[in-house]
Amino acid sequence: MPPVTHTFAFDPTHGHTLDDLLKIGAPTAPAGFDAFWRARKEAADRVPPRPRLGRVVGHHDGHLVQEVSYDTLGGRCSALLALPGEGAARHGFVIGHGYGGRTDTGTDLPLPLPGSAAIFPLAPGLPALGLRPDLPSTPDAHVLHGIGSRETYVLGDCVAGLWGAAAALLELVPSLDGRLGLLGESFGGGIGALALPWDDRFAAARLTVPTFGNHPLRLTLPCTGSGEAVRAHVRTHPEAVEVLAHFDAATAATRVRVPVLAACALFDPAVPPPGQFAIHGALGGPRQLEVLEAGHYAYAGEAEERRRLDRVTGEFFAGWMGRG
Score class of each variant (00 low, 15 high):
residue 1 M to R: 13
residue 1 M to D: 13
residue 2 P to W: 00
residue 3 P to R: 10
residue 9 A to T: 09
residue 23 K to M: 13
residue 24 I to D: 01
residue 28 T to G: 11
residue 28 T to D: 14
residue 30 P to F: 13
residue 31 A to R: 13
residue 34 D to C: 02
residue 35 A to E: 15
residue 36 F to W: 13
residue 43 A to G: 06
residue 43 A to I: 04
residue 44 A to G: 14
residue 44 A to L: 14
residue 46 R to N: 14
residue 46 R to K: 14
residue 46 R to M: 12
residue 53 L to Y: 04
residue 55 R to H: 10
residue 57 V to Q: 07
residue 61 D to W: 10
residue 61 D to F: 14
residue 62 G to L: 10
residue 63 H to C: 07
residue 63 H to Y: 04
residue 70 Y to H: 05
residue 74 G to Q: 05
residue 75 G to I: 11
residue 76 R to I: 11
residue 78 S to Q: 15
residue 87 G to S: 08
residue 88 A to S: 14
residue 89 A to K: 09
residue 89 A to D: 08
residue 91 H to A: 13
residue 99 Y to W: 12
residue 99 Y to E: 10
residue 104 D to H: 10
residue 104 D to A: 13
residue 107 T to Q: 12
residue 109 L to A: 06
residue 111 L to T: 05
residue 112 P to K: 01
residue 113 L to P: 05
residue 117 A to T: 07
residue 123 A to R: 05
residue 126 L to A: 02
residue 128 A to M: 12
residue 137 S to W: 15
residue 138 T to G: 09
residue 138 T to N: 14
residue 140 D to L: 08
residue 141 A to M: 13
residue 141 A to K: 15
residue 144 L to M: 04
residue 145 H to R: 10
residue 146 G to W: 09
residue 150 R to C: 09
residue 150 R to T: 09
residue 153 Y to A: 08
residue 155 L to D: 09
residue 155 L to P: 06
residue 160 A to G: 03
residue 165 A to M: 09
residue 166 A to R: 06
residue 169 L to F: 01
residue 171 E to V: 08
residue 171 E to Y: 10
residue 176 L to E: 01
residue 178 G to H: 06
residue 180 L to A: 02
residue 181 G to Q: 01
residue 191 I to M: 11
residue 194 L to M: 11
residue 195 A to H: 06
residue 198 W to F: 15
residue 200 D to T: 13
residue 202 F to V: 01
residue 204 A to R: 02
residue 208 T to Y: 04
residue 212 F to T: 01
residue 215 H to S: 05
residue 216 P to V: 12
residue 216 P to I: 13
residue 229 A to W: 00
residue 237 H to S: 14
residue 240 A to L: 03
residue 243 V to N: 06
residue 244 L to S: 06
residue 247 F to W: 13
residue 250 A to Y: 00
residue 250 A to L: 02
residue 255 R to M: 03
residue 259 P to C: 05
residue 260 V to E: 01
residue 263 A to T: 06
residue 263 A to C: 04
residue 266 L to I: 05
residue 268 D to F: 00
residue 269 P to R: 00
residue 272 P to R: 12
residue 272 P to V: 12
residue 275 G to Y: 03
residue 276 Q to K: 08
residue 278 A to H: 01
residue 282 A to P: 00
residue 285 G to R: 11
residue 289 L to D: 07
residue 292 L to H: 05
residue 294 A to W: 06
residue 299 Y to D: 05
residue 306 R to P: 00
residue 309 L to F: 10
residue 310 D to S: 08
residue 312 V to S: 06
residue 313 T to Q: 10
residue 314 G to Q: 08
residue 314 G to S: 15
residue 315 E to C: 04
residue 318 A to E: 13
residue 319 G to A: 11
residue 321 M to T: 00
